[in-house]
Design a protein around this nucleic acid. Sequence first.
RNA 1: UGCCCUGUAGCUCAGUCGGUAGAGCAGCUGACUGUUAAUCAGCGGGUCGCUGGUUCGAGCCCAGCCGGGGCAGCCA
Length: 448
Amino acid sequence: MPVDSPVTILGWVRTVRTGKEVAFLEVNDGSCMKNVQGVVNQPERFPILDKILTGAAIRMKGKLVASAGKGQKYEVAVDGLDLVGEADATFPLQKKRHSMEFLRDIAHLRPRTNTFGAVNRLRSKLAFAIHKYYQERGFFYIHTPIISASDCEGAGNLFRVTTVDLHHPPMKDGRLDWDADFFGTEAYLTVSGQLEGELLATALGDIYTFGPTFRAENSNTARHAAEFWMIEPEMAWAELEDNMNLAEDFLKFLFRYALDQCKDEMDFFSQWVDPGVRETLEGIVQSKFERLPYSEAIRILERSGEKFEYPVSWGIDMQSEHERYLTERTFKKPVIVYDYPEEIKAFYMRLNDDGKTVRAMDVLVPKVGEIIGGSQREERFDILVDRMKKKGIENVEAYSWYLDIRRYGSVPHAGFGLGFERALMYISGMGNIRDVVPFPRVPRWAKF
RNA sequence: UGCCCUGUAGCUCAGUCGGUAGAGCAGCUGACUGUUAAUCAGCGGGUCGCUGGUUCGAGCCCAGCCGGGGCAGCCA
């Protein structure tokens, strides 16, 4: 747009500075980090200025001009000013830093801050980048059910879905009669689309899901939410090596995409949220993720000389402190740990020839911890059934549909789950999952 | 769920030994010819989370409850 073009600015006032001869209005319309400065000469022409405070929605007409001041190249010489929506002095957001805790209480207004504007734009761009990545590589986007009847998907507690009158539930033989419920059986919100994803992968080849996921765990940490979005690719004709390659390439693609497509947002995060995240991501895009077998990881931890709260030995489920040691101290970059002990991993993971480990992998990153969990799936019918029984799954028949994939035309396949919010945390440097989702759901909090 | 920290003005916080409430920002009034979280002068603003207890007297000490946060577990 050339200088001297007529412009109309629609946006929300971030700050007003008034003088006798000149007034300045800084306006942001949410489209980017930058504000536009409106300059009002002879402010007495616009009595409405008295009512325009921080937070007001205004329409500003004028001419685009080269700025006479420092700090911006261009500005708007205002000759028309309307107050579209007043914001009085009770408007909670001020032109200074607020605590994240306070902003969570006003989650309906926090998108108007620099930080949450940046987070929400990043979130949108990366959601698109996920589709771009998989679509360009021939993966099909599939929709797995959000309501699920299988209660043993393996990951944590589930939210029940029901239409029964909880005060007067239908009873039969002294027990609740689920046959009288909406689906004629117990139903839950999904904790993973993986099992259904496998069904589609063994038909379409490579697929991915990207949708909401629900865990009813009473988790009170900065990296757990009751409702979050998960990306789950699943590849037929693929083994663990392919899975690790995909995970690494995919994460790097997302980092690169954020650096290239969200430059101003990344600069903002790097300056105000987590000093140097931009440089950290740039470094990681260039480097290779460290890949090490679980047994090797345990050896490193044992030899570290570090005093861990939870002692280290082969067979333990690694604790936060162990994962952090590996990513933050030993390697200072993402680490893929694979070939975990069979005892501590889910039934569907492929058993190695040693009979002791399975083809599982976790991608760990500094600060956030586990960002990806995945595996090569057990495609051998008999071994899968054995492992299900060994893991204490009583009604193996309930999984006949899952087992049928191994009964008919079984192929090696592999996949993983990436927590979208955890990726956003890592990329933005935001320290709490509640601040990378517009309206977070965590224990005791479902407001807005 | 466990351990720890925390709750004072619209916001961010200070508040000494238990003696009856304070600063910055925001708002209002005024000053200022170009500001950048503008600056300068002045003004208004409080159920100290709630309930009870100890005390002549509680923001401060004690108990219970409610809210928020951190770490851990569960996991993405």
